[in-house]
Amino acid sequence: MADQIRITAEKRAEFGKGAARRIRRADKVPAVLYGHGTDPVHLTLPGHETMMALKHSNAVLSLDIEGQTQLALAKDVQRDPVKRFIEHVDLVIVRKGEKVTVDVVVHVEGEAAPETIVTVDHGELTVETEATHIPESFTVSVEGLEAGTQIHAGEVELPEGVTLVTDPEALVVNVSQAMSEEALEAELAEAEAEAGIEQEESDEESASAEAAEAPAEGAQEGEGASSEE
């Protein structure tokens, strides 16, 4: 569980794109706080502290708003697609003991059996948990697992007080047999043939073909000379 991070927030009265740009130029982040039937409150958050806090998924912030403390869950974080700085944050009011539904990332650790491939089908699980006790991640071990092994959502170990919302039968991790190099080349050749792609001969293949043709040509010449005699 991630610690609650205390951040001093300022209420703001300016809205719109122009106001948001001015806030970002001052190394701050525009945000809105809502929930529990209250009117949305528009805030300005300190840039660096907010960036560090939101490195954790499902971060719960302890906001100091004009001397009043309010717990809030970061529900939606909008980032610049190129520079990745935070453009805007949606915050939802939460209270101690309150249950929330969140997506928690799944981390896979360990090495499966040799010549296997590990595929993660569900990288996140949706769970219900107390707002102040949200797990940072769930760990699934594939150590030594053989090909054909599957781990479903209902088999992932969850901390006490955390309830699975994702379908228990949903496939999380699949361990399959790795394809041999020969089989992979054959499958690739078949796919290229179906697509009408002609593979050019390599230098080695060309040399081998020429070497195979040379004796045959020599034999033909010898036969011709014998007949002329």
Results as ranks from 00 to 15, higher is better:
R6S: 15
T8F: 09
K11F: 03
K17Y: 03
G18Y: 07
G18I: 03
I23D: 02
R25Q: 13
D27R: 11
V32S: 01
L33K: 02
L33H: 07
G35A: 03
H36R: 08
G37E: 05
H42Y: 11
P46K: 06
K55R: 15
H56L: 10
N58Y: 03
S62Q: 14
E66H: 11
L71S: 06
A72W: 03
K75Q: 13
K75H: 12
D80S: 02
K83Y: 11
R84L: 14
I86D: 06
R95D: 11
K99V: 12
V106Y: 09
V108Y: 03
A112F: 01
P114I: 00
T116R: 00
E124Q: 12
E124N: 10
L125K: 04
T126K: 13
S137R: 14
G148S: 05
G148K: 01
Q150A: 13
V156F: 07
P159D: 07
G161Q: 05
V162M: 08
T163N: 14
V175Q: 02
E182H: 12
A183Q: 15
A186P: 07
A186R: 15
E190V: 04
A193T: 01
A195K: 13
E204Y: 07
E205D: 10
E210V: 09
A211H: 06
P215G: 01
A216E: 14
A216Y: 09
G218R: 11
G218W: 11
G224I: 11
A225P: 00
S226R: 15
